[in-house]
Structures are given as C-alpha cells and as structure tokens.
Simulated assay, not measured.
Amino acid sequence: MLKRELEYFFGALRFFTRLPVPRWVGHSSDALDRATRYFPAVGLIVGAIAALVFVLCSYLWPTTLAVLAAMASSLYVTGAFHEDGWSDMVDGFGGGWEKAQILTIMKDSRIGSFGAIALVILLLARFCALIEFDPLEIPFVLLAGHAVSRFAATTLLCGLDYVRDEGKAKPLATRISVGELGFAGMTAVLPLLLLSASEALLGCLLAALATLWLARMFQRRIGGYTGDCLGATQQLSEVAFYCGLLCSFS
C-alpha cells in the first residue's frame, strides 16, 4: 500500500514539475487519477524550493532580487506549466464567444495579446505582493501560497466536468472523492499553521473567492473545465492568497 501511495505521489510530481522521480514509477492514467490528492503536496515541494532559493539569495541581494530569484526557481521547476494555462485560458475566454471557439483558441500553442498581457500582469502582481511581506515571513508565505492554490485548483475536479475528449488534463478528468479532497485540504492547511490565524483566514477567503469566480465562469461559458482552466485557477488563487494576507483594515 505504501508503494502504491508513493507511486501516486511521484506520478503527481512528474506530471506537474520537472523534478526527477524513481525509475520504478510507472505511467498509468488510473494512477494519475488517484494522484489528485497529492497536488497540494507537490505545491509544498515547489514552495519549499522557492523558499530555499529566497533564503539563500537574501544573503547576497536585496529582497526584491531574492523574490525575483524565488519566482524564477518555481517557474523553472514547473516548466511554467500553470502560467501557460493562465495565458491560454485568458486568450480563449477573452477572444472566444462560443464554447467551440474558446476551446480552439485555448488549444493553440501560440500566445495572443490577451494572454501575453494577462501573464505580465499576473507575474507583476505576484512580485509586488511578495515584496510587501517581512523578509522573514516570505518563505512561509511561499510554502502556503503554492499549497493552497493547488488545492483551489483541485476543487474544480470535485464540482465540474472535463469538457475535452483529450488533452493534457484528460488523465485527471475523473471526479475526486470527498476523502481524497479532504486529504488534499489537510495537506494545504499544514503551511497555514506557520502564519497568523487572521492572515491565513483572509488569504484563504480571497483565494476561495477567486476560485469560485473562475469556476462559475468556466461552467457558464464552456460547461466545465480543461487543463488550462486548472492552471489558471492555481495562478489566480495564488496571487489572491498573497493579496488576502496583505489585507489591512486599520
């Protein structure tokens, strides 16, 4: 059983990152279906790498450059997988009117004006948010942001249908069970314990609102989700989480 769970975990790690996994881990659509519970755990690893890069670079450079290096490390580790989904989603929903047109645009490997502008704004928003935190807090913020945002994307598997006959998220298209979603949620909660309760609550609230807004749009416009929609949800909810942490009512 332990080997099977490790296979599920490493399958998720291989699908969402460029990190090496043991050779004995096989390729199976069914195993990847079961790996959905480990998406926030993958986020913890990506966040830990980004946090480590930030800490090391902060000894050499100002906070701004250390944050930029941390962001670059997460982009490298994931191959900008989710950022690509964000730009494709914005291109599709920004340039398409009907379902078929939206799906066709999202499948196009070329990036359009909507996607390019949205990607620049998203990365800039993430950078501007992160540099507002106390440098000592940034590693914990990165850990939580990457885990919570991947849980946010996982919730779409629970409530929406996959709308393509094939695609990069097709192996994940089965509905996640309540137990698997609960496990994913508990994993996402762990790094929140490193933050103050009020900050964590506001961060999760804004991430949830961003996720609900996107889910409603996906359901209304195309009747469900695609792999690009999952990536876009991860990206927007991550930035929303950071903005929630920074909320001040004083």
Rank of each mutant, 00 (worst) to 15 (best):
F81R: 02
F81I: 07
F81Y: 03
H82G: 04
E83K: 02
E83L: 08
E83C: 06
D84C: 01
D84N: 06
D84T: 00
D84W: 03
D84K: 00
D84F: 04
G85Q: 04
G85W: 05
G85A: 00
G85C: 02
G85H: 02
G85S: 05
W86H: 04
S87T: 15
S87N: 15
S87A: 15
S87Q: 15
D88Y: 02
M89D: 08
M89K: 07
V90W: 00
V90Y: 02
D91Q: 14
D91W: 13
G92M: 05
G92T: 05
F93S: 06
F93Q: 05
F93T: 07
G94P: 13
G94S: 14
G96S: 11
W97P: 07
W97G: 15
W97D: 13
E98N: 06
E98Y: 00
K99A: 14
A100M: 09
A100S: 14
A100N: 12
A100R: 12
A100W: 08
A100F: 07
Q101F: 07
Q101I: 02
Q101P: 01
I102G: 06
I102L: 00
L103W: 03
L103K: 00
T104F: 12
I105N: 03
I105L: 08
I105E: 05
I105M: 03
I105D: 04
I105F: 03
K107V: 11
D108W: 01
D108A: 06
D108E: 09
D108P: 03
S109E: 04
S109Q: 01
R110D: 03
I111A: 11
I111G: 10
I111L: 09
I111Q: 08
G112H: 03
G112Q: 08
S113M: 13
S113W: 09
G115F: 10
G115A: 11
G115R: 12
G115V: 12
G115E: 10
A116R: 09
A116G: 15
A116P: 12
A116M: 14
I117G: 12
I117C: 15
I117Q: 14
I117V: 15
A118I: 10
A118P: 01
A118C: 01
L119N: 04
L119W: 07
L119R: 09
